[in-house]
Design a protein around this nucleic acid. Structure first.
Length: 284
DNA sequence: CGGAGCTCCTGGGGGC
DNA sequence: TGCCCCCAGGAGCTCC
């Protein structure tokens, strides 16, 4: 998504911002009208990302002074999409925010069925990070991600391994699917107590998380280029590549035993009961 | 403070 | 067909 924004909206100047659903901009405390007024005439800089958070800094334009040190922060939540569409194209059912550009080209649409995601205009700190992203850990693709630091902080926790993997302040970018896939790859049960995770195990689960996310990116990362058609996250990659997620009752591709689904944290966890042995002292 | 449960939404799909 | 229930790739908030 970040690459798509870099290609399609970087350097373009905003003509108008239309908020069609106030909830989509609820994190912008000053409100929808303020967001629209302050963005008009601003130019997008280079898209940046940390974990699942994405932001577009505003930059100086040739003709006009920019809102230096501010950025449009985006989070897609569970059902958000960013689409670049010709203005003549019919609206998707759940368009929440529309941004048009002074060049008259394609518009940017924030589409979100469940409105768990949203966007806001925020100030950047000295490191160029938006305030709402400052508490988010580096993701495993970031050069600054330090796996030994992750292992140390993981072991200081008193909780279950999967819960920790989903905690974006420990490591970011890992969601429910990637957590299950990484745990399967590392042969670790989701209820392993964090304090008992060895450095080698922490390293293993991060390496598998990185691998599965890289594979997903390779297959789904081009979706932004086909924005002319409605993009959904469920392109090919789902059916072909998942080892355990959504495969309850199907054989584990490593050992053949049946993948199990358990309810946990009000969501589903999928795992192989043989490859991922149940811990003696589980933590949930 | 760290940890855990609740909650915000809309819609698809299955069972009856 | 209609209704009800469960499920869905997230994370901030509030309680303990």
């Amino acid at each position: 998504m970040r690459r798509g924004l870099a290609r399609w909206v970087e350097g373009r100047t905003i003509a108008s911002v239309e908020v069609l659903h106030a909830r989509a901009v609820r994190r912008h405390i000053a409100g929808a009208a303020d967001l629209a007024a302050r963005l008009r005439g601003q130019t997008f800089g280079t898209a940046a990302r940390r974990g699942k958070y994405l932001w577009l800094p505003l930059r100086e334009d040739a003709g006009q002074r920019g809102l230096e040190g501010e950025a449009v922060v985006l989070h897609l939540g569970m059902s958000g999409q960013l689409l670049v569409q010709p203005a003549t194209r019919d609206d998707e059912k759940h368009v929440r925010v529309r941004i048009t550009f002074a060049d008259g080209g394609r518009e940017l649409r924030f589409v979100d069925q469940r409105t768990f995601g949203g966007m806001a205009l925020e100030t950047l700190d000295a490191d160029g990070v938006p305030e709402s992203v400052a508490h988010i850990a580096f993701d495993p693709f970031d050069d600054r991600f330090d796996v030994s630091d992750f292992a140390r902080r993981l072991r200081a926790r008193r909780t279950g391994l999967k819960r920790a993997l989903l905690d974006q302040t420990l490591v970011s970018g890992i969601g429910n699917i990637y957590a299950d896939e990484a745990l399967w790859g590392a042969r670790l049960h989701y209820a392993r107590a964090t304090e008992g995770i060895t450095a080698a195990e922490a390293d293993r689960v991060i390496e598998h998380a990185r691998a599965v996310m890289a594979a997903a990116l390779a297959q789904g990362g081009t979706s932004f280029d086909s924005l002319y058609v409605n993009v959904n996250g469920e392109s090919g990659w789902f059916e072909r590549s998942l080892e355990v997620y959504g495969r309850a009752g199907e054989p584990c591709r490593r050992c053949g035993s049946l993948v199990r689904r358990e309810s946990f944290m009000n969501r589903s966890s999928y795992f192989c009961p043989i490859c991922q042995r149940h811990p003696r002292h589980p933590r949930w």
